[in-house]
């Protein structure tokens, strides 16, 4: 990924904070794409990633359980419990695949997912 353009972030207004269950996730519709958004209430942190699990291409990560491994926040896919870091997107259960993660910010009780310019470009190319 090209570092210079990732700085160029568009903030997408996803939902209100109270729409997201504590220590769980929801699926956000962004254009024709799906983003999994998590509120890690216990750590008072927000994370977002692609909703598709790369293992079997299932739109499911938002329904997965979140937790930590040695302090690293992660999500487990409901299908085969493969786990992915919510910070780096790396697969923590030893598979090759990884997921894309997004920055998140909260302002005035609304949650925003940060879309970088290259993602916008990808969308346009589809």
């Amino acid at each position: 990924m090209n570092n210079t353009i990732t700085q160029n972030i568009t903030w997408f207004k996803a939902c209100r904070t109270q729409d997201v269950p504590a220590n769980g996730g929801v699926c956000v519709k962004y254009k024709d794409d799906q983003i999994a958004l998590f509120h890690f209430t216990r750590r008072d942190e927000w994370y977002a990633s692609q909703n598709m699990c790369p293992h079997r291409m299932q739109m499911a990560l938002s329904r997965g359980m979140i937790g930590t491994q040695q302090g690293e926040p992660k999500v487990a896919c409901p299908f085969h419990k493969k786990t992915f870091s919510l910070v780096t997107g790396e697969c923590l259960s030893g598979d090759e695949c990884s997921i894309k993660t997004y920055p998140v910010k909260v302002e005035h009780d609304y949650v925003y997912v940060g879309i970088t310019a290259d993602e916008n470009m990808e969308d346009m190319m589809v």
């Binding site: 220590n23 890690f40 216990r42 750590r43 997965g64 359980m65 937790g67 930590t68 491994q69 302090g71 926040p73 992660k74 487990a76 419990k81 786990t83």
Partner: peptide
Amino acid sequence: HGDGCEVCKP
């Protein structure tokens, strides 16, 4: 301790 995971939660 910590934040739980897909093993201890269920």
